[in-house]
Write a protein that binds this DNA or RNA. Structure first.
Lengths: 157, 157
DNA sequence: CCATCCGCTGTACAGATTGCCCAGCGGATT
DNA sequence: AATCCGCTGGGCAATCTGTACAGCGGATGG
């Protein structure tokens, strides 16, 4: 479950240069190929590495606007709302949370005007009481994991 | 920039089975290998596909708690706050937004107790006026892109 | 102190894949 | 009618993958 230093270096290496294969990785890390293969297998069956899916940029697909919506849900409607939101392609992510709202979701849209359409579709569902939306202007820190991996690796030296 | 139906099928296929190579993909899609290679190259130079980095699960690394913090920033301190937050490994993502707060960031922590430490570190910086945190309880829709890809592909049939 | 287990190393081999190239073909454009 | 462009189908050498094996050293347990 916890990762050691070599695991950390391997993950960081794969994150930086995803196209390299096992053999090249073993050369870079200075270990035998079998070791890298064993580590990779372990990391994947561990669930530490979920997969190597393509990282698609919504902006390049024509959805340059991102927003976060905080939703307030009518008691007992949670399941229905989840199913509703799961059916909206522009909902990239949905969390249930503590705090002021009950749910937080990440949305994308083709434009600010289009965002209105998306929000209407999202909140146009019985069970959603109120929604407040924050439009993303800038993304100074894009979703990242490497610093955390490095810290986790150091913790287990 | 826009993607056609074949691009869409290719992305979906890669997302479902990331380990398959170009040759296998061409067999599945029923097109020539060169076509898949050309499409992949184009998608990557387009920026539609940013890469194939490993998807690391913070929970498996020992950080099972996720939270979103809305930050209010003192005017003119934006750049400093960004740099500060970029230096905290537990900050996985940071956006500047419209609306009530000025920034929204995604945090992870080893436990609810550890979350306190992370938040203290995040907000313990001159320039951050106020922070409100929502702890994630459930994640009914994990970060996804396939439905959007399918929609974008259909739009360009 | 000794036996055992486990992970890493280094090597080997057949089979599959990659990167690259080319000629031909059909649809769309001009 | 001429041209451009993307896709096809084929071929080639070089590389990588999957898999297996024996040896080695450190850690564990008796």
């Amino acid at each position: 479950m916890a990762i050691d230093h070599l695991d950390g270096r391997l993950i960081v290496l794969l994150a930086r240069e995803p196209r390299i294969g096992v053999l090249e990785a073993s050369r870079r890390l200075g270990v035998a190929r079998g070791t890298v293969q064993a580590r990779l297998d372990r990391l994947q069956s561990n669930g530490v590495i979920r997969g190597f899916g393509p990282a698609v940029d919504p902006a390049a697909l024509g959805y340059p606007v991102t927003a976060f919506a905080t939703l307030e849900i009518k008691q007992g409607q949670g399941a229905d709302v989840r199913a509703h939101l799961a059916g909206v392609p522009e909902v990239l992510e949905l969390h249930t949370t503590t705090g002021h709202g009950d749910m937080l979701c990440r949305l994308v849209a083709r434009s600010n005007a289009d965002l209105q359409r998306v929000i209407d579709r999202v909140v146009g569902f019985d069970g959603i009481v109120r929604a407040s939306t924050a439009i993303v202007m800038e993304n100074p820190v894009p979703l990242r994991i490497i610093p955390l991996v490095e810290q986790a690796a150091e913790d287990n030296d």
